[in-house]
């Protein structure tokens, strides 16, 4: 690991007083990447003791401090009761050891990555811009089918962020000049385009202070993760769905997909086709096929174009009481 200066942030208000550097939360991704010398920060700013570790219920929102651990968030009674899709997504990720350490903000800002990003003997535009992408013609079973570019087909591995995308969460930030930022979680991460080295839209030194969940979320919620092992494995495809059923009609429907793109993917085309309609299996499939119209496989991951719609359709059938498979 390369040498670095270590600093602690006492409170978010002191952001302007510490050296600019990489923020350290639970470190479960960053420390690992520093050991590989893929991340080589000169300064680490430890934000775990800056008072951002509470979950607060406000009138119109639930505010989750960015340093609340994945375990504490997943097991919080309010989250278990009103936002079960989030609890379920969190518990689907990683291991108990990692969830105890990983934080809410850190989970969002873990690197979008694939095995070629870790392998310094291979070309990776995300690790080394301009070096190429060995995943395009390589082992790309886990890679993106939506929103990718010829420069990068890695996926964002978070389960939590997929659930937050379906819940309409907003990321609350603080910049070095003291101003506050508010970014919908669906707009926090970037698609790779020609800058796959950039994962997110935050400014240099901009700190995630909290994540805000809107109050009164849709009543029907579900998270499903398809993976190669039943525990401790990234999703091949995952989906988070939230909706209400009013007089038999689907309302406030939100569908987010994981494991298919460089960011949590809101299936807005499918949502628009289904909103206000009565549940119907054929309609579900039609909407999801529409969503997948632009999907592009790279060989080993072609199956995701079929799997992702099937996962969502199965979940919608279950949530709306259609049953069957």
């Amino acid at each position: 690991m390369k040498p670095f200066d270590y600093q602690r942030l006492e409170t978010p208000e002191h952001l302007g007083h510490v050296e600019a550097g990489r923020f350290l939360g639970g470190g479960t991704n960053l420390i690992d990447l520093m050991k590989h010398q893929i991340e080589t920060p000169d300064v680490l700013v430890d934000v775990t003791r800056a008072g951002m570790d509470r979950i607060e219920e406000r009138g119109d929102a639930v505010l989750i401090g960015s340093q609340v651990s994945n375990t504490d968030l997943a097991s919080h009674p309010l989250i278990r009761r009103d936002y079960p899709v989030l609890s379920s997504a969190l518990l689907s990720g990683a291991t108990q050891q990692l969830r105890n350490k990983a934080t809410t903000g850190g989970n969002l800002l873990q690197r979008t990555r694939c095995q070629y990003f870790y392998d310094t003997a291979r070309a990776c535009n995300k690790r080394e811009p301009g070096s190429g992408c060995d995943a395009l013609d390589g082992l790309n079973r886990f890679h993106a089918i939506l929103g990718a570019s010829e420069n990068c087909i890695a996926v964002h591995p978070s389960d939590m962020a997929v659930a937050m995308a379906a819940l309409g969460a907003v990321v609350v930030t603080r910049k070095r000049d003291g101003t506050e930022g508010r970014i919908p979680v669906t707009e926090l991460h970037r698609l790779p385009g020609d800058r796959p080295d950039l994962d997110h839209v935050l400014d240099e030194g901009e700190l995630i202070v909290a994540v805000e969940l809107p109050a009164s979320p849709p009543r029907l919620q579900s998270y499903r993760k398809v993976r190669d092992r039943s525990s401790y494995a990234f999703a091949v495809v995952s989906a988070a769905i939230a909706l209400d059923l009013e007089d038999g009609h689907m309302r406030n429907l939100r569908i987010a997909l994981g494991g298919v793109a460089h960011k949590p993917w809101r299936a807005t085309k499918a949502e628009a086709m289904l909103e206000g309609k009565m549940p119907e299996a054929a309609l579900f499939m039609e909407a999801l096929e529409q969503e997948m119209a632009d999907a592009e496989g790279h060989g080993h991951n072609d199956f995701k174009k079929i799997l992702a719609p099937r996962v969502v359709v199965a979940m919608l059938r279950e949530l709306t009481g259609l049953g069957g498979n």
Binding site: Y6, L24, G27, T28, I31, D32, L44, D46, T48, S69, T71, Q96, Q97, L98, N100, K101
Partner: peptide, 13 residues
Amino acid sequence: GRRINSCLSLAVT
């Protein structure tokens, strides 16, 4: 009181 992977945690923290 919580189990963690001590290899992924900097002692200084």
